[in-house]
Nucleic acid binder design. Structure first.
Lengths: 237, 237
DNA sequence: GGAAACAGTATCTGTAGGACACAGTTGGCT
DNA sequence: AGCCAACTGTGTCCTACAGATACTGTTTCC
């Protein structure tokens, strides 16, 4: 399994984009890529990404481990299939509220965030250079369509798109959102102990440390989009 | 090894913060945590995070695998030590240029980015809830000190700090920056093939697709900080 | 109806993290 | 000075993982 900046293999592309030619002869396949990917997603959702092994996914389906290799060339392909399945189809452009680019971007971020929250392992697995599957590409297409009318250059739009996706990821650590304080209790204890080295952080501890339930997603998005508005205004005027 | 949202173990905290009491009797230790962590960092820098195994790190030091466990309770601790070593000490507040918060934030992002570029595996390993080591905490303290004079609330400053760190991570995929196009060649081929489903992305392919060498880091930062300025101005006025 | 093409299985290999018992080394205490 | 407890690094073992390969049984085209 690749944990490093991954180059997507050709086979994975064929898999995701339905380019694998189906055979005619031979026994009817009992399994399917969809069932396998779904089982893996369910497992990751329930017990975390570390629980997803070929063995375990196969066991959940009541098959042997090696049978999975008839549908996926390796674990990397399985993960790629998991991603596209978990991400799912984006809404249609018309379903996004309002007509301007700003409410539409806000909706895109909100909806993508909601989708991701259901699969907390996605941030770990969508990093690095990959070839996106159809669903992921469709989400990007949707955002690109929204951004097309901002008047930004293509490069700027791509920077912004990457940034917005990253912002969803950054504000995703759901485990602590809303309930636990920003700063880990043990981290807080360390800050108090070393107050001389970290006076500013130490002082911040005395404030209310309950993070907003969205981990600052809305706040950050507002900053970004205000910046976009200012850029557009500066060019227009 | 934990690839999931990791809760830092107590032992790791003791390790990072120098709370492990040294023994008096017994043979002189030949190895040290620093040597081990340094070897692991060198290895990760040269051959990627996947190459870092207990076996391999030990071999690079000409020791057996199990000897490492005298200094680290497990691989998680090793990785934690790697992070704090790789991140290193931040500059002093006085070394940041200018006096206002804006140039200082810009400098913080630039310097942290430079540090990270030398260790491309850091993004993968610094995700999720962790207890930060002293160096990482010092970087955060520095940023917090800079943000203290923005007039933002504590919650807003924490959101912004998290966001800025995330922005560095998001714009870190160095592999493609400056040289290869934004869009993977194979991804581009797929977009051309499915131009009907992805018309906007398809159209963008005809533009110049060479990403800026900083992956849009400066552009994104400008948007964020413009947003901060607008927020401050709105409250002042 | 036979042979090629396939699906799922059984078995094996290499590598990973880590537990455990050991041999040799050092310092404190009597 | 000597002895024992405490320690360092080693050797061996176990379990879990991804994956290769050879197999058995099934399907369909010729």
């Amino acid at each position: 399994m690749v944990t490093d900046p991954g180059t997507t293999a050709d086979g994975t592309i064929q898999l995701l984009w339905g380019l694998r030619e189906g055979p005619t002869r031979g026994p009817k396949p009992v399994l399917s890529l969809e069932r396998i990917a779904q089982a893996a997603v369910d497992l990751a959702d329930a017990e975390g990404l570390a629980a997803v092994s070929m063995q375990r996914v196969a066991a959940d389906l009541d098959f042997t481990k090696m049978s999975l290799y008839r549908y996926v060339t390796g674990k990397d392909e399985l993960v790629a299939a998991m991603i596209d399945l978990a991400v799912g189809e984006p809404p249609a452009l018309g379903e996004l509220p309002g007509t301007g680019w700003r409410p539409r971007i806000e909706a895109w971020v909100r909806l993508l965030g909601q989708t991701w929250e259901a699969h907390p392992w996605l941030p770990w697995v969508t990093m690095g250079d990959r070839v996106m599957g159809p669903n992921e590409t469709a989400w990007t297409e949707l955002l690109a369509a929204v951004l097309a009318r901002t008047g930004l250059t293509v490069t700027e739009r791509m920077s912004l798109a990457r940034m917005l996706g990253g912002h969803v990821r950054t504000t995703m650590s759901v485990s602590t959102a809303g309930t636990q304080p920003w700063v880990n209790p043990r981290q807080a204890a360390l800050l108090r102990e070393h107050a001389d080295r970290f006076p500013t952080l130490r002082a911040m501890l005395d404030d209310d440390l309950t993070p907003p339930p969205d981990n600052g997603r809305d706040f950050g998005l507002r900053l970004i989009l205000d910046g976009v508005e200012r850029l557009i205004a500066a060019r227009a005027g």
